[in-house]
């Protein structure tokens, strides 16, 4: 269970560029919760993820993971329990290392007691092969190839596999399909659904697609100006349409939408 209490983050404090990115956010994500997050650019969605993941420390408030205070735990330690994917497929993998070596690094999260001088074992290779086969991209036969040779979609699928190879307590997906072509994006979305369900992960997913915001997971959050302005689940969510969500947005934020991508999704949806 992830719990944020009154989290506040200000950038460039005391300058003309001062920006209140998170304005006292309170959020509880239960085990097995899959929440989608929508909101216009600059609403604080990515900042929220950066605070949870530990890319920077919060100014005020606390973050708890399974009732353990992780507010001041460094990013690399949090990574044992928090998996992350970014919009940029290049961010999650080391391009000059092979698929196998990338997976081996991700697998380091599994057992901290393992000797740092041990090598990739046969059992691990078999495990990596099995998991890669599940992606249905033929990557299991290319394990000795550098990751730099893969396409964006393949790299993102691999990153998803790496982030969940050792199931984290919570998975943070920051528009992880936005840079992919529609067909590949659908594939990665399907993969995401399956992996999250199979491992029963808690998951937060930022998206600009209102359709998948309502369709995926069991909960939808909307952010604006550093606050969570809408939090729906259950029947209320089941009865929600894309139009309804947009109306709620205007009502909650008290202004008209200024984001083309969200408006477009109304047409698409």
């Amino acid at each position: 269970m992830l719990k944020l209490t009154n989290v506040r983050k200000v950038f460039n404090q005391g300058t003309v560029n001062e920006k209140l990115a998170l304005d006292g956010v309170n959020l509880t994500v239960e085990d097995g919760d899959f929440a989608t997050i929508v909101g216009s650019n600059g609403a604080g969605k990515s900042t929220l993820f950066n605070c949870i993941g530990g890319s920077f420390l919060v100014d005020e408030g606390s973050i708890f993971l399974d009732n353990r205070d992780i507010t001041f735990v460094p990013e690399y330690r949090r990574a044992v329990e928090i998996g992350r994917l970014f919009q940029d497929p290049m961010k999650g993998t080391a391009p000059h290392m092979t698929i196998e070596e990338n997976l081996a690094l991700a697998y380091l999260r599994a057992d901290k007691k393992k000797s740092v001088f041990s090598r990739i074992s046969k059992e691990e290779r078999t495990l990596f092969r099995e998991r890669l086969a599940l992606l249905e991209m033929g990557l299991e036969d290319r394990m000795k190839q550098p990751v730099g040779l893969l396409s964006g979609g393949q790299r993102q699928a691999l990153t998803l596999l790496m982030a969940t190879l050792v199931p984290p307590k919570i998975l943070l997906l920051d528009e992880h399909t936005a840079a992919l072509d529609p067909a590949t994006a659908d594939k990665v979305i399907a993969l995401t659904k399956r992996i999250v369900e199979e491992n029963h992960l808690a998951c937060l997913m930022i998206t600009h697609n209102m359709h998948s915001a309502l369709e995926m997971g069991n909960r939808t959050l909307m952010m604006d100006a550093g606050r969570i302005v809408l939090d729906i689940r259950g029947e209320e969510r089941a009865g929600m349409t894309v139009d309804g969500l947009l109306e709620k947005f205007s009502a909650g934020a008290g202004k008209k939408l200024d984001n083309d991508r969200i408006l477009f999704s109304k047409v698409e949806g």
Binding site: Y76, T93, L105, R109, M162
Partner: peptide, 9 residues
């Protein structure tokens, strides 16, 4: 890729 190293704990 330093980010990836950090993500691998």
């Amino acid at each position: 890729n330093e980010d990836m190293v950090r993500a691998s704990s």
